[in-house]
């Protein structure tokens, strides 16, 4: 069952009218390898995510997940296959409790969406699974709080919790630390490391924050003007002159300094 290549993208292109948002991007994500996608604004990162996660259809090219052609498969079907994305904007269930936010996707996963006579709180397996996830994220103590009352960083963790509840094998994390303060960012980085090391989940991250990318990723892909500019280890990327050029020669150095 373990193909070494989890996600394979073959010459993916997507245009909007005359604008070529992605052109001929090919890349491979090996199972268990923490990868990141970076690029200047407008490089096509979000488009890439939207195409891979089934939100847009590509103009050309194919996407394979565990060897299976998933080009154009809609998001809710990808969930069942094990490919999920998290959202840049916090996308959770505000007036529900922390526990319920995790129980909802779990109930879907367990095929219990239409179970209308059983009591939810008596579903031991479901509740335990939910609490395990929450413990992992350090949220178990707040399981009965309404999520709308949580701090911003915690809300972002709920987003991750919902994703984890779907038992994914590949997670596309869209800017997981966007809008976070340094402490929250630190916590998120630790969490991603931890999850990547101790679970079956492979993460594929896009980030603005270069510090996060370079401290998290094992492989980095660089997009520029819709094309794949470079790929390699963080060291290789740092040393790559084309990448420096793309980032207007400044920002990468600035990050390092």
């Amino acid at each position: 069952m373990s193909t070494p290549i989890l996600l394979q993208v073959e010459s993916l292109s997507r245009s909007f009218g005359k604008f070529q948002a992605l052109s001929d991007v090919s890349l491979e994500i090996p199972r268990g390898r923490l990868c990141a996608l970076i690029g200047p604004n407008g490089a096509g990162k979000t488009t890439f995510y939207n195409v891979v996660s089934g939100r847009y259809r590509p103009t050309r090219g194919r996407v394979f997940f565990e060897g299976r052609d998933i080009t154009g498969v809609p998001p809710h079907k990808l969930v069942k296959l094990g490919l999920l994305r998290s959202f840049q904007i916090t996308n959770i269930f505000p007036a529900l409790t922390v526990l319920e936010n995790v129980l909802a996707p779990l109930a879907v996963m367990h095929g219990m969406s239409f179970a209308f006579w059983r009591s939810l709180s008596s579903q031991q397996k479901l509740v335990e699974e939910a609490l395990t996830i929450l413990e992992r994220l350090g949220l178990a103590g707040q399981s009965h709080r309404e999520v709308s009352t949580l701090a911003y960083g915690d809300k972002r963790l709920i987003e991750i919790a919902i994703v984890l509840a779907c038992r994914p094998r590949l997670v596309l994390l869209d800017e997981p630390t966007a809008g976070m303060n340094p402490e929250e960012t630190e916590r998120m980085i630790r969490l991603i490391h931890e999850l990547a090391a101790h679970s079956e989940i492979t993460f594929f991250v896009t980030e603005h924050d270069m510090k996060v990318v370079f401290s998290v990723a094992q492989t980095i892909f660089v997009l520029n003007q819709g094309r794949l500019l470079a790929q390699g280890t963080p060291e290789e990327i740092r040393a790559n002159p084309a990448v420096r050029q793309a980032y207007l020669g400044g920002s990468l150095d600035a990050e390092r300094a």
Binding site: P75, H76, K77, V79, K80, L84, R85, N91, I92, F93, P94, A95, L96, E100, L103, A104, P105, A107, V108, M109, M112, S113, F114, A115, F116, W117, R118, S119, L120, S121, Q123, L126, I162, A165, C166
Partner: peptide, 25 residues
């Protein structure tokens, strides 16, 4: 009904329809 998993689905739809469909419901 409202205290069942189905009831949770209903409230999740009320709170964030799109999110629920993105987890496969």
């Amino acid at each position: 009904m409202v205290n069942s998993p189905f009831g949770l689905m209903l409230r999740s739809i009320r709170e964030n329809t799109q999110r629920l469909s993105f987890v496969g419901a």
